[in-house]
Each structure stands twice: as structure tokens, then as C-alpha cells.
């Protein structure tokens, strides 16, 4: 669902009654946070989707990494998970077994316990998880909190929306997008720890709303803006080529419309490049507001530049705009 529709629907829900709800529906955060005591809070999230790749084992891993990512994006540590499965009963059960094996292997890698799950008969397979994590209530990594001067840091390349569309259209095979598949499988665990070590002031992960859509969730209505250098934004191989071949997913256009009002284009980038910055991501990287002096601590855990990218800087801006250079 597009960001605009979601916002409209969430507005209809009643507000949060409990004081223990530290992060709820009011803010566009990645997961909800419920305080247990002053040192511990629960982080909860749920996410599931249709296959983005043909290989069921790989799809299972990607879906799990994607579900876990929302916990990492809040600065939390995932502890337990429940599978959510939709599967056509006339399809080979061996496929389902492979999907679940992929998910379970990824949970094992993350040190997360699988507690159970639920399966529904459906025409198209879907898989994902409800994940619970814990977080120090004083160290929650919220979407909002960046300050002017902070660096905008991204930890995975973009392009999975375009590439999986190209895969669906048979313009590419899975061999062609190996790097993107590995990227989608990889956990944001390291990035989350690096963010905490670098004293990141705010953060989220890049998923369905695309880079610009998620960046917009980091900016309040007024006061804070962000300058983004489009040339320093990394893409998986063949993304641009596939976008030029007409493989831009419809969601990228919806995301583009959503941020239109906040966008200022002052550089030499064409419309296609703007659309690429709106490409919806599956299991995308983390997007962080890092104070400049936190870069060293961040790098110590994350590795050298190339494992992450500094793509912009937060600025004072009364109108809360995103400036593309």
C-alpha cells in the first residue's frame, strides 16, 4: 500500500491509551515499542509479502531478513519470531518446506527463536514473520531526531524493486542479480550495532516507500531538511539499465507522488533518477542520521566506506524539504 493511503487509514484508528507505549501509531516508525521496566522495552513488528525471487529457499531467507530488519531499525535485538504463511494447497509442499527452511536458517544466524506460526490457504504464496525484540528504552532509534549537520548514511545499495520487476518480466535471470539477492538476504544486525556505536540520532530501514519516502519519515513537517547527493547513492548492478528498459515498478511512481511536495531538484538529474531514488526496496539497508564525530565509531563496526555510503547531510530548512543535488 502507498504511504498516502496508509496514513489516511491509520488516522481513523483510536489513539494509544497506555503510558507504556513508547512508540505507537502516531509516528511513522518501523516497529512498536512497549516498555516493560525502565531498562527493558519490547519491540514488535510484522511483515510478509509475495515472492520476489523464484528460489524458495532464498525467498525464505529474504523474507526473514526483511522482517527482522524492523527490529534492528529501532536499535533493538530480535529475540523470538512467529511464521506467517499463505500457500496454495495444490502447490508442491516441498516448496513450502524450502521457504520455511530459508526463514529458519536466517533466524538461526540472527540468534532468534522460532516459537510457532500460522498458515492460510491462499492463491498466491506469501511469507513473513511477526518478530519480537528487546531494546533499551533510553536507546531507541526512532525515525525522528536528526539534527542539522548530521550525515545521512545508507548501508545497502538500492534497486531491488526494479530488479525483481525485471526478474518477473524475464528480462533478467536470478544469476544476473546475484549481488542484489545476497544484499536482500543479509541482516541489518551489524548496521544497527554500528549505528548505536556511532551515536546515530535517528534511523530507519529502506523498504516499500523507497529511499526518498523513508527519508521523508525522518523529517518533521518543518525545521529540518536534507540535502542528498544523488551521485553518491549506490545501486545494485544493472538497476539503471533495467529502469531504462521500462522495468520501473508502479510503487516507485506512487512513492514519487507522495514526496513530490517536499522535493527540490537542484542538480542535473533526470526524472528516471528521481524514480530510482523512490524504488521500493525489499529488505533494504538502514538509513541513519549520524553525527559527524560518530563516523569513526560507526566505521569500526561497519567496516570501511563501500560497506556503507554517506549520501547526504541534514540541514536547517523551515519547510522540511529534501534537496536533490
Amino acid at each position: 500500500m502507498g504511504p498516502e493511503d496508509l496514513k489516511r487509514i491509520l488516522k481513523l484508528l483510536p489513539g494509544q491509551p497506555a503510558d507504556e507505549v513508547l512508540v505507537g501509531l502516531e509516528t511513522p516508525d518501523d516497529a512498536g515499542v512497549f516498555m516493560l521496566d525502565e531498562n527493558t522495552a519490547l519491540v514488535q513488528t510484522v511483515d510478509f509479502f509475495t515472492p520476489v525471487v523464484d528460489d524458495p529457499y532464498l525467498f525464505g531467507q529474504i523474507a526473514a531478513a526483511n522482517s527482522l530488519s524492523d527490529i534492528y531499525a529501532m536499535g533493538g535485538t530480535p529475540i523470538s519470531a512467529m511464521n506467517i504463511v499463505c500457500f496454495p494447497c495444490n502447490l508442491d509442499m516441498e516448496i513450502l518446506a524450502e521457504i520455511l527452511r530459508g526463514g529458519s536458517d536466517k533466524l538461526h544466524e540472527a540468534g532468534v527463536a522460532l516459537l510457532g506460526g500460522h498458515t492460510v490457504d491462499d492463491q498466491e504464496p506469501k511469507y513473513g514473520m511477526a518478530v519480537t525484540g528487546k531494546v533499551d528504552p533510553k536507546r531507541i532509534l526512532r525515525n525522528r531526531g536528526a539534527r542539522p549537520g548530521d550525515l545521512l548514511v545508507l548501508t545497502k545499495p538500492l534497486g531491488t524493486g526494479v530488479l525483481s520487476t525485471a526478474l518477473k518480466a524475464d528480462f533478467l535471470s536470478e544469476d544476473d542479480i546475484e549481488e542484489a539477492m545476497m544484499g536482500m538476504c543479509s541482516l541489518n544486525e551489524n548496521a544497527s550495532q554500528a549505528a548505536l556505536a556511532g551515536g546515530a540520532r535517528a534511523g530507519t530501514d529502506v523498504t516499500g516507500f523507497g529511499l526518498l519516502g523513508h527519508l521523508a519519515t525522518m523529517l518533521p513537517e518543518r525545521g529540518l531538511g536534507c540535502e542528498l547527493d544523488h551521485r553518491s547513492v549506490p545501486y545494485y548492478p544493472r538497476t539503471r539499465e533495467m529502469a531504462e528498459s521500462g522495468m520501473v515498478p508502479g510503487c516507485a511512481y506512487r512513492n514519487r507522488d507522495f514526496i513530490e511536495k517536499r522535493l527540490v531538484i537542484s542538480g542535473d538529474l533526470d526524472e528516471l533518477e528521481v524514480l530510482l531514488l523512490c524504488d521500493p526496496q525489499t529488505s533494504g539497508g538502514m538509513l541513519l542520521a549520524l553525527p559527524e564525530d560518530g563516523l569513526r565509531g560507526f566505521r569500526e563496526i561497519m567496516g570501511p566506506e563501500g560497506c556503507f555510503w554517506v549520501i547526504g547531510r541534514f540541514i536547517e530548512d523551515p519547510e522540511g524539504r529534501i534537496v536533490l543535488r
Binding site: 529502469a243 521500462g246 520501473v248 511512481y253
Partner: peptide, 15 residues
């Protein structure tokens, strides 16, 4: 029947 397909088809052909 939609602008997304219009742009994508046009871009593909131009390419």
C-alpha cells in the same frame, strides 16, 4: 490504461 505503463513502455521502446 495507466501512466506507469505509458512511461515504462515509452522508455523501453526509446531505449
Amino acid at each position: 490504461d495507466n501512466p506507469v505503463s505509458r512511461d515504462n513502455v515509452a522508455r523501453f521502446a526509446a531505449n
